[in-house]
Simulated assay, not measured.
Amino acid sequence: MFAFDLPFLLLCMSSGLISIFLVILILNLLTFSRLRPIHMKKEEQQSAPFFSILVPARNEEKNIAACVRSLVAQRYERLEVLVLDDNSDDATAEIVVHIIEALPPDQKGRLRLFRGAELPAGWAGKNFACHQLSQVAQGDFLFFTDADTIHDPDTIASVLACMKQHTVQMLTAQPEYILSSFGERLIMPSLNFLNLSSLPIALLNRSKEPILATGNGQLLCFERSAYEAIGGHTAVKGTLLEDVELAREARAAGYRLLFVDAFLLVRCRMYRSLAEVWRGYSRNYFAFYCHSLMFALFGLLLNLLLYVLPPAFLLYSLFVPQSLSLIVLAALSSALPVMMRIMLSLRFEHRARGMMLLLCLLHPISILFDCLILVNSIRWYYRRKGVEWKGRQYKEQK
């Protein structure tokens, strides 16, 4: 009987699980709160809290000017923008200095540049840079962001309004990702696909379990009292996934967190080529699995089963005749993820949308690349010299 045939069982399992993930994705698209632009009037800002915008920067000469200018241009008046040059060997610091010099006299105090100290043992570079910035920040709120982000002028006002509305002490967000090269467009949306189709965002926001908390360093805003209570970046000084770990520390301490869609307000150009995507995600992809080899291998096999096996079987059936039931199951299991990817593109991709929709047809190849990146991330973690990032070597404790 075909019901006991291994390919049939695997394809049944694949289509069943994909159907569950489709439901999760639809719920996420319906419940993923969007951070919407809020323009705060000047008279409202007189009693508003003071914000410190903190930007760690190491070798960011391609990105830093656009980022800093967007932050200085915030329509929220009560803020300071603090940039720390983390021992860059490019023109990062010089670019910030030129921006400061070009500011009108009444705006020069709005932006300050600091030179980072030498990296102490046991610290990851970005974490120590953020720690140094937090020590000189004056704000009631600490707004951490990466140097490769560009912010709408109403970002700070919108973040404050959202945090007050939901009564949370930490807010993090997913920005719009600027994708230009073929490699970026092929791989990066599939990582978003895996995240939004596997965990309900409503659960991430409402659960009290630290393991379900998430954070994104491209926009990570704390009430200062909450940040200091959990120990700040000192509590996560050695990890390469510090944003997620900070969120878990905050939740473990009883603080309320919110993860929102900042597509309308924040843009980010993380990588500029397939090679950069490969290196960047290899740095911390394994950390998403809490450095559990068993957990990572399970995720690897699950992704291959769900998203690579069905189209591979369809291809195989072109050369070796198969029963109609198997072909129908394989076609269904192949079509559903493509449909899910199209749904995500329609929600999150507004640039070159036609090309992005076409690339949805290559979803199995995207997932295969993701699996290879995970394998490489595991390899980097276990090799003797550890992970290399921006000219530094990190060897996290196993």
Rank of each mutant, 00 (worst) to 15 (best):
N195K: 13
L264M: 05
L6N: 07
G183M: 04
A73W: 06
N216T: 13
A3F: 15
S282N: 04
G122C: 08
A252G: 09
F313W: 10
L9A: 13
P337D: 01
S366C: 09
L82S: 07
V375K: 02
P321M: 13
L9R: 15
L297R: 05
L304N: 11
L171R: 04
L305F: 05
L304I: 15
L203E: 09
L336C: 10
V72G: 00
A157K: 01
I178S: 09
P311H: 02
A3W: 15
Y227L: 10
I365H: 04
F144Y: 14
I20F: 00
P310W: 01
Q135W: 00
A173P: 00
I378P: 00
R112Q: 15
P311N: 06
A117Q: 13
L113T: 06
I156V: 15
A137I: 01
R256D: 13
G386C: 07
A296W: 02
R115A: 10
R347Y: 09
V81I: 12
L358G: 12
G232W: 04
L142Y: 09
L186K: 03
K62N: 14
I230N: 02
R267F: 02
G16W: 08
S225R: 15
A202W: 13
R69Y: 07
L329S: 04
L362V: 08
K126P: 05
N28F: 01
C130S: 14
W123G: 03
L142V: 07
M270D: 12
L240D: 05
Q45V: 06
V266Y: 01
L82V: 07
L212S: 09
S181F: 06
A124L: 06
K164P: 00
I38W: 10
F288D: 09
H291F: 15
F348Q: 04
L314R: 08
F182M: 08
L329C: 04
P56G: 10
V83C: 05
P364T: 06
M1G: 12
A331T: 14
L25A: 03
N216K: 10
Q132K: 09
Q218V: 14
A137T: 03
M270F: 13
I20D: 00
S52N: 05
I230T: 07
F288H: 14
R75L: 15
F193Y: 13
P7F: 06
Q74F: 04
Y255C: 07
L113V: 07
S47W: 14
P105N: 10
K390V: 10
R110K: 15
L265C: 04
I18H: 00
L29F: 06
V68W: 04
S207A: 11
S15Q: 09
L219C: 15
L82H: 04
S273I: 05
I365W: 12
E77G: 06
R110I: 09
A229E: 09
S15P: 01
